[in-house]
Each structure stands twice: as structure tokens, then as C-alpha cells.
């Protein structure tokens, strides 16, 4: 077991000073090399959950166990070590990049910050990383706005893979891209997974994608997990009316 979430709760206070629960009593576990999916409509709390796992949002209560160690509240060096092992691919590729930072500098950041290698070595290494995801080394000196969404998402994935983490979270990683690019990115993720065997959490609103690549699917609705699907044929397995609703809505379009 590499990651375990125990009774995670998180609520936010909205403009009317009312507390509103974004994540309620979520339990989840992720084994080594597994890929789990979190599926639900917009606003169901799946992104909040991803941010909680990444320590970008703190939990109100509940515990996060990483490799058996309680990692609910981490600070300083511990958090840095945690980030060496947990990385996230964000939804909107363009907003993941600082507009005034070149692609090369973006890629080098973690390797220099984590003191994995020196600047010169890192520069060479990130060039190779780019080629791994099918982009040429020339892009190192470009600014993010000169690249397309699909290319940027490749750069993000390249950096995540380069750190060699235990877990990569894909938070709607393909939903900002058009359909053909979506497939390329999914294929890329699939190939890389076979090469380096990281565990992944795939967050999406599309049950069809999740069904294709995930070992286990958690269906979320208004902050709660309403159903866990373990088999491959979710159409037959789905019990909860909400899951059926989701399935129907995706079937209409495909």
C-alpha cells in the first residue's frame, strides 16, 4: 500500500460565511503500480481531493498515510521529500507555467531544488526528458505561450516523470485538450507507465477514459464517494443511480 486516505474531511467557508463541505469522509487506497480513477461531475470535490493529496490544501481532519507513515501535516524538509515522490499534472497546461519562465527553466526547477543534480547536468537531463515525450530540445529556450496546449502538457508530464516519483496525479490532465491530442497524451501516459511503473491517480469526469486505464474507479458526488468499481465492465457493475446517470450522459455523446 503506497497511499492511504482515512476519513478525509475538508470544508470551505463561502461568501455568506457558511461552511460548505467539499470532501466528506473519503477513504481511498492506492497500491504500488496501480492506477485508480476518481470520477464525478464538476464541483464534486475531486480536484480538492487531489490538492489535499498534494498538500496544497490542508485537511480539516482525517489522515494521509504515505508508505505507511502518517503524512497528514508536513513542513519544510519533510514536505520537500514528499514532493519528490508525489507529483501532479494540472488541468490547464498554460496556467501551470509562469508566463515569464522559459520551458528549460521550468523543467530544471525540481532537479535543482531537490539537489538531485547541478545546473549544468540538469540542463542536459531535461533535454533528454523532452525528447522522451516527443518534443525537440529546441523548446528549452521557448516561452510557454509559444507552445500549444498538447505540447505544454507533454512538458509537464516530462518533468513529473523525470523526478521519478512514486505517485503521479493527473487532475483532468486531458480535458483542456482537443480529442486527437487527448488520445496522444493518454497514449504517452500509458507508455510511460509501462516503462517506469509509477502509481497514478486519474481524475476525470469521463467514465469512458477512466474505464480504459484504471484498475479501480471511485465515483464521487458532492464530496462523498458513492461507489467503488473494481471490475472492468462498469456498465454491468454500476449499482448506484448516480453512476448510471454519469454513464448515460457519457453514452449519449459517444
Amino acid at each position: 500500500m503506497i497511499l492511504e486516505l482515512n476519513n478525509i474531511n475538508k470544508s470551505f467557508i463561502n461568501n455568506d460565511k457558511q461552511s460548505f463541505a467539499a470532501v466528506k469522509n473519503v477513504n481511498m487506497h492506492l497500491g504500488k503500480g496501480e492506477c485508480i480513477g476518481i470520477v464525478g461531475e464538476s464541483g464534486c470535490g475531486k480536484s480538492t481531493l487531489a490538492r489535499i493529496i498534494c498538500h496544497l490544501t490542508y485537511v480539516d481532519n482525517g489522515n494521509i498515510f504515505f508508505k505507511g507513515r502518517n503524512s497528514t501535516r508536513l513542513k519544510g524538509k519533510e514536505l520537500k521529500d514528499y514532493y519528490k515522490n508525489v507529483q501532479m499534472v494540472f488541468q490547464d497546461p498554460l496556467s501551470t507555467f509562469s508566463p515569464r519562465m522559459k520551458i528549460g527553466d521550468y523543467l530544471m526547477e525540481p532537479f535543482v531544488n531537490f539537489k538531485i543534480m547541478g545546473k549544468k547536468e540538469a540542463r542536459k537531463y531535461v533535454g533528454d526528458l523532452l525528447e522522451n515525450v516527443g518534443l525537440s530540445k529546441e523548446y528549452l529556450n521557448r516561452y510557454p505561450n509559444e507552445l500549444s496546449g498538447g505540447q505544454l502538457q507533454r512538458v509537464v508530464i516530462a518533468r513529473c516523470i523525470g523526478i521519478n516519483p512514486e505517485i503521479i496525479i493527473f487532475d483532468e490532465a486531458t480535458s483542456c485538450l482537443d480529442v486527437s491530442i487527448q488520445n496522444q497524451i493518454l497514449k504517452l501516459i500509458f507508455e510511460l507507465r509501462q516503462k517506469s511503473n509509477f502509481s497514478s491517480i486519474f481524475i476525470t469526469h469521463d467514465l469512458a477514459i477512466a474505464e480504459n486505464i484504471c484498475d479501480r474507479i471511485y465515483v464521487m458526488k458532492s464530496g462523498e464517494i458513492v461507489e467503488v468499481l473494481e471490475e472492468n465492465n462498469i456498465v454491468r457493475e454500476a449499482q448506484h443511480p448516480y453512476t448510471k446517470l454519469l454513464l448515460e450522459s457519457s453514452l449519449v455523446f459517444s
Binding site: 490538492r51 498534494c54 496544497l56 514532493y83 501551470t96 525540481p110
Partner: peptide, 9 residues
């Protein structure tokens, strides 16, 4: 991108 920077250590 600030979050991404934070996650890059």
C-alpha cells in the same frame, strides 16, 4: 504555476 513551483520543491 505557484502551486507547480511549490511542488517542484
Amino acid at each position: 504555476y505557484i502551486d507547480a513551483g511549490r511542488m517542484a520543491g
